[in-house]
């Protein structure tokens, strides 16, 4: 996987007229409007590919995830299926409820975190890094098992502080370009940027196969790409910042059905 990452050179292009449009300081407007998924803006060819289980390359990871879930890992630890039986029933809807606050630790935990917790606590195995094929495969498999399930994260009680932090990050201008998430994903939906059409950042398609990445990637990797785009200080994949943003995004898009793995440009 390390090799894959260095294959491509980082090049970030943001058209100057777009920066100009964002540069003016001033109060941010947030308009209530229906959220538009990036899948709506896919070309017909890519949309057809996404819907085709052979052409949607994300399905390769789903297949790998099913294998990892059912087969015992080397070294004698019990398989995921030993405890969770048939994932089709035991894991249905799980991805739609996460991230959630873990009662014991008080931390916000997403699907990647849950999988790693079981690896550490229940299998005595080291955690899997973000963007490894194994973690992407398990999360893609488990998320796809919730396809069609509406996002239903809780932002009450202990989750409310994390939600508030995510909302703050969403509205905060950041980076050399001094742009907030909301300026693109609330106020500029439908506009073109670097050949992309800006969507409402509905997180239902992740992990997603992005042609630019030439592989599957986590939601956090996508958030990092957005931060790179505005030349901001990057957060760590799995950091509390990205977790809070993930909770905010999933609450903002509540009731939108999961549809993963999506195909993205």
């Amino acid at each position: 996987m390390g090799g894959l990452r260095v294959l491509c050179i980082a090049i970030v292009l943001i058209h100057s007229h777009t920066i100009g449009a964002f540069a003016a300081d001033g109060p941010l407007r947030v308009e209530a409007q229906p959220l538009r998924s990036a899948s709506e803006f896919l070309s017909p060819a890519l949309r057809a590919e996404q819907a085709d289980p052979i052409r949607n390359r994300g399905m390769l990871w789903v297949e790998q995830g099913e294998r990892l879930f059912t087969q015992p890992p080397p070294g004698g630890a019990p398989s995921c299926a030993t405890c969770h039986a048939r994932a089709e029933t035991s894991m249905r809807g799980v991805a739609a409820r996460l991230p959630a606050v873990d009662a014991a630790s008080g931390q916000l935990v997403n699907l990647e975190g849950r999988v790693n917790e079981c690896r550490i606590v229940r299998q005595s195995l080291p955690p899997l890094d973000y963007e490894t094929d194994e973690l992407l495969a398990l999360t893609a498999y488990l998320t796809a098992l919730s396809n069609g399930e509406p996002l239903a994260v809780s932002i009450d009680g202990p989750a409310s502080a994390f939600y508030a932090y995510g909302q703050q990050l969403w509205n905060e201008r950041q980076g050399q370009l001094n742009v907030a998430c909301t300026q693109c994903h609330d106020q500029s939906v439908g506009r073109k940027l670097r050949g992309d059409t800006i969507s409402s950042a509905v997180p239902t398609g992740y992990p997603a196969y992005r042609l630019e990445w030439q592989t599957l990637g986590s939601l956090h990797r996508r958030l990092r790409a957005c931060q790179l785009g505005v030349r901001a200080q990057l957060f760590e994949l799995g950091s509390r910042e990205y977790l809070a943003l993930e909770l905010y995004l999933k609450s903002r898009a509540r009731r939108h059905p999961i549809d993963a793995p999506a195909l993205r440009r």
Binding site: I9, L211, E212
Partner: peptide
Amino acid sequence: VLLAACLDAG
């Protein structure tokens, strides 16, 4: 080609 192969903005 709208976006060349081998660009990675993250």
